[in-house]
């Protein structure tokens, strides 16, 4: 049984982008808070803090999650992938090629979610793409270019491993 208590910080081990890191956390820390403040991984963005905007999306065992709605304690024993671990994702390159970026604040969340979609459903149709992308908001409203980028990446065959780990970095 995993336990952490209020009286002090708890030292836990977190598997992020393929590497295990020992960190000190409060039970109340969200994964977003831990990634940004403890590990310096600032790609996942703090925005709504409510699970509405998707700017903080990371992969937990390959599944996209709002890291603002996940306690760090809940993510122990799972493989976490952030945008920093997707440097060689074809989705990232597709965003560059399709100019799918305006102010850029939402971009990491979209790329992480898009990477999971392309990995899990390489044959995704419009309906599925729209369902997945509804999880992320772009206040610059550049949705068409984002959708184009995801579609262009769908046929790429140089994906990372099934856990979304950046194998080129290992």
């Amino acid at each position: 049984m995993i336990v952490s208590n209020t009286g002090k910080y708890t030292v836990v081990s977190l598997l992020v982008n393929g590497s295990s890191q020992d960190i000190m956390i409060r039970s109340a820390d969200t994964l977003l808070c831990t990634l940004r403040n403890q590990l310096g991984l600032t790609g996942a963005k703090q925005a709504c803090g409510n699970g509405d905007c998707g700017a903080c999306t990371v992969l937990v065992d390959g599944k996209p999650m709002h890291s603002c709605l996940l306690l760090t304690m809940e993510a122990l024993n799972s493989g976490i992938t952030t945008i920093e671990g997707l440097r060689h994702s074809p989705v990232r390159q597709a965003f560059v090629d399709n100019w799918a970026i305006q102010c850029g604040y939402c971009t990491p969340g979209f790329i992480v979610n898009g990477h999971a979609l392309v990995t899990e459903h390489p044959d995704a149709e419009d309906e599925r793409i729209e369902e997945w992308l509804q999880s992320n908001l772009c206040r610059c409203t550049g949705y068409q270019e984002i959708k184009d980028a995801i579609k262009s990446a769908l046929n790429a065959n140089n994906l990372l491993d099934s856990n979304g780990i950046d194998t080129a970095e290992q």
């Binding site: 995993i2 039970s27 820390d29 306690l71």
Partner: peptide, 17 residues
């Protein structure tokens, strides 16, 4: 950020919970 502290438990059985 959650502005207060709490204990966190993750039991493995119903009885333990």
């Amino acid at each position: 950020m959650i502005p207060f502290n709490f204990d966190y438990f993750k039991p493995e059985t119903l009885e333990e919970a």
